[in-house]
Design a binder for these strands. Structure first.
Lengths: 290, 290
DNA sequence: GATACCTGTCTACCTTATAAGACATTTCCC
DNA sequence: GGGAAATGTCTTATAAGGTAGACAGGTATC
């Protein structure tokens, strides 16, 4: 991974062009302006532009044909895995994709103040902290840091955690998991995360922070998850509800269906096709996977 | 904004450390590792680390005490605005915060293929593309690129768009807005977006792509939104539903209530407080704001 | 008070990025 | 066939970023 970190200016146009290619603004198969044109447009030298194009070519995003021009390669929009808003990776099982987990760390620690506060811990109360990486088809896509109050954490072992979803373990232990609250943001990859996810330091990441409570309002789990946006994104369908003047979007609540049902609907903006049917997503899930 | 463009590596740790400070991972008042430690950790020279710290100090995020260390300054964790998953900025009005819009661009264009496809346009059909920046209390937090089929776009003017939400205009024009589908990811800021949002190139951004359809399944709006994660994040409450073995999270569907109701509940993981009451969020909204 | 560790500052040196060209070669189109 | 325009591949020169190390002075701890 991490082929040659381009310097400042070259990186800028690289990122710029990359964006425009990935989000479809520069259409697949179309020709870019000549290197000199681009250089002029951005006030750079041709060498610099060239370096950016080199990287793009290396990424497989463009084709360069001497004498002819530089072209956006087709079929490049790598569709990320899709999770619906409840963070369930549907389809994975049905698609026959192998998922895996790597347990990077497992320890009892004094949690950061923010974690302690959100879990509602007593001062000095310790937590079990685990760091896991989830893989799909061998490729890492998420980096999960969970904190569980010590008294709850002791109900399962390190080996359990390496093989089963945390929520499953909690429920197995008799913990009632009822409510949660989560927020989604974005950050940059630090050294350890970058390493674990096979990224360069400074790559963009989707971040999700979720706090889970039992019915009594006692904090049970604090999850901080980081996702590679090129391999994972959140998706949700919405319907417009409410009276005129107070109309708003509401999520479509998806029923859980038992039988297999292949649902074909593109997700990320690019390449979505026009929906003939209503955008109600029916998915069957076997397993919750954060 | 953007004082002195630091070079590549220096900027990276700057952005990284900045992230970790702003989201509370590095707790206010705590001491950072020594400059040499940081340098070692990231594989950089001390000078480079120093440049990053200089910038942080300049931002007022850290205090450097010679002989003692470098400390995270207090009171810096700016809580982002919170939108629930339907992307409504609740609370804004009640909190008396001023929102604004800047219309950066307004034109009829040939849309990127991806946009055309997701809207279900005929080949060659044009769209009205607008680029807007939304502000809160004068500070920009989102960068919105919308595509609307030309025949629909003509029902309102540039001035309309600069002052009213797009969905409102569409509904005023008699368009039935019923269904939408959106996905959330993350990217880095390119030059124009960075400029518009007052960020440095390479800052992390939340990205949202939403396609809106009318009841017939005809595409009505394609929105590509980029948010500053330090000023804006998505939040949602979840409840655990379903039978044992197929349990999953479902969003809490929030009723729309008329009266004012100040709801105190922190959002981003850091600094959340323990919920005494059930995590059902009651919010009153006046206006949809993307 | 001695010691370890921290930031502040400076110097010298190396590596890399960028700029500005020149020139060859290929492709496409008239 | 000829010419325009594109990429590929070199130069040479300048600017900027980054590294390594030394040293001064402050602060905390034992």
């Amino acid at each position: 991974m991490a082929d040659a970190v381009e310097p400042l200016k070259a990186r800028r146009i690289y990122l710029l062009l990359r964006e425009r290619i990935l989000n479809g603004e520069l259409e697949p198969g179309s020709r870019l302006p000549g290197e000199l044109s681009i250089a002029a447009e951005y006030g750079l030298s041709r060498v610099t532009v060239r370096r950016a194009l080199d990287t793009l070519a290396n990424d497989g995003l463009i084709d360069r044909r001497p004498g002819s021009g530089t072209f956006v390669r087709e079929g490049n929009s790598v569709q990320p895995i899709v999770a619906d808003l409840s963070n369930v990776l549907s389809h994975l099982v049905e698609m026959g994709r192998r998922t895996g987990v790597r347990l990077l760390s497992f320890a009892y620690v004094n949690p950061p103040e923010s974690v302690a506060a959100s879990l509602g811990l007593e001062p000095g109360e310790r937590t079990q902290r685990s760091i896991r990486v989830r893989l799909i088809d061998g490729a890492p896509f998420s980096y999960l840091v969970t904190h569980v109050p010590e008294r709850i954490g002791v109900t399962y072992s390190e080996a359990d955690l390496a093989s089963m979803p945390l929520l499953g373990l909690l429920e197995r232990s008799g913990i009632m998991v009822e409510e949660a609250s989560q927020s989604i943001g974005a950050t940059l990859a630090g050294p350890d995360v970058a390493e674990a996810l096979g990224l360069e330091i400074g790559s963009p990441l989707l971040s999700l922070t979720r706090v889970v409570w039992d019915p009594s309002g006692q904090g049970v789990e604090h999850l901080h998850a980081l996702y590679r946006p090129d391999r994972y994104s959140f998706h949700m369908d919405l319907v417009r509800t409410g009276a005129v003047g107070a109309r708003r979007w509401n999520p479509v609540v998806k029923p859980v269906i038992a039988g297999p049902e292949t649902h074909k609907r593109k997700t990320k903006g690019p390449e979505s096709s026009k929906p003939k049917s209503r955008p109600v997503r029916v998915s069957n899930q076997r397993r919750t996977s954060t």
